[in-house]
Design a protein around this nucleic acid. Structure first.
Length: 266
DNA sequence: TTAAGTGTTGCTCT
DNA sequence: AAGAGCAACACTTA
């Protein structure tokens, strides 16, 4: 479920469980997750080193190694970061494991292997190389830049919202939620939105993502902890709009299924 | 058994 | 050139 709010939750897990601790041992159970990076090089970078900072940019999580570069984590479709205590019981489908001194363990799990774990010497260079726009919850996500990006594309507004080069962190689920809360039709052209709609959209991005983080995105029973106005729990076949109870419509784009309310969003 | 799925990339065609 | 559409990645679940 790893969009910005989920990755932010992972960041906090990493911060709480790993920060200031030395990594005693690193295990890679499936080297494909490292891409071209060798397991040897990867563990050499981390073993015996201390984690000193955890930062998130868009859907990427970066962990600073004391006096060196950064461990980079991307969660793809099925990735997660999970702490555990019992060394005999690592979670299923873990691909990379960090064993800290004092018996704390962190597992990067990824069932479908779509995702990446890597290394970069410089976080800013990494962000630039990934061609990421401003982080959706960052200072640099200004209305002026957002407006320029939206009016500069003639695609449908949903695909622009999901374009990581325009704004980093929004995926299929939260794009649907944001458009629902802003009451904008996902099929509308991004360059055809009225100024008031653009304003609303920009404000709603911040609001929805912050709410999701505050309610513990990705945690168990997350849907139950969301405000009643949220689309997310109804986002399934036969789902109804939480505002007007109309049957939700689905929409396929880029291999993703989108949900929206045909009555409220137009 | 088949298809679909919360992400990204890279290709083709227009 | 921008954008649409699709396959690929890999694996589970409905």
């Amino acid at each position: 479920v790893p969009e910005l709010p989920d990755v932010e939750v992972f960041r906090r897990v990493l911060q709480r469980r790993g920060l200031g601790r030395a990594i005693a041992h690193v295990a890679v159970t499936d080297r494909r997750i490292l891409g071209k990076l060798s397991t040897r090089e990867f563990s050499r970078r981390l073993t015996g080193k201390k984690l000193v900072r955890a930062r998130r940019y868009g859907k990427h999580l970066l962990a600073k190694i004391d006096g060196d570069g950064w461990l980079t984590l991307h969660f793809g479709l099925t990735g997660a970061l999970q702490p555990y205590k019992d060394p005999q019981k690592p979670p299923p489908y873990y691909r990379v494991r960090l064993d800290f001194s004092k018996g704390e363990h962190l597992a990067y799990i990824n069932r479908r292997m779509i995702g990446r774990v890597g290394w970069t010497d410089d976080a800013e260079k990494f962000i630039a190389a990934e061609n990421l726009g401003p982080d959706a919850l960052g200072r640099r996500f200004t209305f002026a830049d957002f407006k320029k990006a939206m009016t500069g594309h003639r695609r449908d507004v949903k695909s622009v919202l999901m374009d990581q080069a325009v704004v980093a962190g929004i995926g299929n689920i939260y794009a649907d939620e944001i458009l629902f809360q802003a009451r904008i039709d996902p099929r509308a052209r991004s360059n055809g939105l009225a100024p008031a709609q653009l304003r609303r959209l920009h404000r709603t991005i911040t609001k929805v993502l912050k709410t999701a983080v505050a309610r513990g995105a990705g945690s168990e029973n997350f849907a139950e902890h969301l405000p009643k106005s949220f689309l997310l729990p109804a986002r399934k076949k036969g789902g109804r709009c939480p505002r007007c109870a109309a049957a939700l419509k689905t929409l396929k784009s880029g291999g993703h299924t989108g949900y929206f309310c045909p009555r409220c969003q137009g």
